[in-house]
Design a protein around this nucleic acid. Structure first.
Lengths: 231, 231
DNA sequence: CCGCTCATTTATCAAACTATAAATTAGAGC
DNA sequence: GCTCTAATTTATAGTTTGATAAATGAGCGG
């Protein structure tokens, strides 16, 4: 048992604005992830051990604080090295994609990342849209191009990537994210060995993607030829 | 332009409790799906064209109304015929599973179903957990059993289904649900031809699942043999 | 150790929240 | 038509919300 302190004895260290701001942002990430974006500023302040009006000295409004949270969680955690990895032809595209998804999933599969992402989506924010556009343009598009190459199929320049091919990418991506959804959104137990789950999913995907892409390309080419014949 | 009505001329049909209750429940489903479960009873009443206290004549509290919404959307939309379909050996298990997922996804891939499901999950409700347990026990378990059979692998009675095999099922399931997530939670455009997307995903899954299950079973058997040798 | 800056708190507002009690009135049964 | 049940509204209590203004006091520079 600790010695009883004098009343009101809690030490109140005065902080530099920079330090206090960091504490608020980090506290806000944990707080809004847990209770949702409708969480109340009073409750957040209580958890931070400060008063609620102090929040408004650092952020003009609750929405501004939320913007800052998005920036911190989604923009700052994006790794430019991912794009380089995809382009590295010293590995097979299957292996490159496997390594990318492994690190990517490790990055996003957190309580904070997933719960705030879904809360923002439900709220109607354009955050998920902007974020997934980036994934599609910077990752999926080059991956599909490399797969076309490795399977001996026409390059995207010769035969544009079709929606179905993108859906294949979103499919495996979604299958992997779904593990995190079950864990952090649905509060379910998922197998402890995430790597094993990951590899199993990825094996099944890589085993199936080649034949399906071949078929899709063949269908596209048939459409093209039919069109040419007509004109 | 319509003729100006007399003031207060809006006709106020008095409804039977049963009818009014239906209107409230259906309005509540649409309302909470759109604005989230924190949506306010006043706003809901306004949309229904009734006053807010009237809601409390039909439901003792907001939480009771929400419970009713869950029941209506999740329990009432479950189709017992799904379980029969899976058991029907006049079709290959691949075809049975394809047909199940096609109808299942058509059932759940709605604005209401998905958005309320995720809101409830974020809120901490056990709804997603209970619901997915049902899917696992009534669908995934028999499907995996049938697949073992069709691939000439040991039955689940001989060699229990392992977590990895369940993850394969959750994987394809998640890949398909992810289409709905992108559409209704993230507010993104997804390809208009849902059936084509669906078939592409399912083709890739069915092409890959056989080999992977064989490998998983072989690994399990190796573990079993090693254990037997030890004892 | 004095004074001033500014980090932080107290006090408070106006609006919006769930929920309840009492007053109203539509409409079925006679 | 009269009456009475109950569907519905008005009025309102009691909290809680995001946000602001004014008061306080910690701690640095001198």
């Amino acid at each position: 048992m600790t010695k009883p302190r004098k009343t009101k004895s809690v030490p109140k260290p005065r902080m530099s604005p920079a330090h206090r701001e960091r504490l608020i942002v980090e506290g806000a990430i944990a707080f809004f992830a847990e209770v949702g974006l409708e969480g109340q500023t009073r409750e957040l302040a209580k958890r931070l051990g400060i008063t609620q009006p102090l929040l408004y000295r650092y952020f003009p409004s609750k929405d501004d604080l939320l913007e800052r949270v998005y920036e911190e969680v989604y923009l700052k955690r994006w790794k430019p090295e991912w794009e380089a990895l995809i382009a590295d032809r010293s590995l097979s595209i299957g292996e490159r994609f496997r390594r990318f998804e492994k690190d990517y999933q490790r990055t996003i599969m957190t309580y904070d990342w997933l719960r705030i992402f879904f809360s923002a989506g439900l709220k109607g924010t354009d955050l998920p849209g902007r974020y997934l556009s980036r994934v599609r343009d910077l990752i999926f598009t080059p991956v599909l191009g490399e797969m076309r190459r490795e399977f001996g199929l026409p390059s995207p320049a010769q035969l544009p990537l079709c929606a179905q091919e993108y859906e294949l990418m979103f499919g495996i991506h979604g299958a992997l994210v779904y593990v995190g959804i079950r864990r952090f959104i649905y509060n379910l137990d998922v197998p402890t060995d995430q790597n094993l789950v990951f590899d199993t999913e990825m094996d099944a995907f890589l085993a199936g993607v080649g034949p399906v892409m071949r078929r899709l390309v063949a269908e596209q080419q048939a459409v093209q030829r039919a069109r040419k014949r007509k004109s």
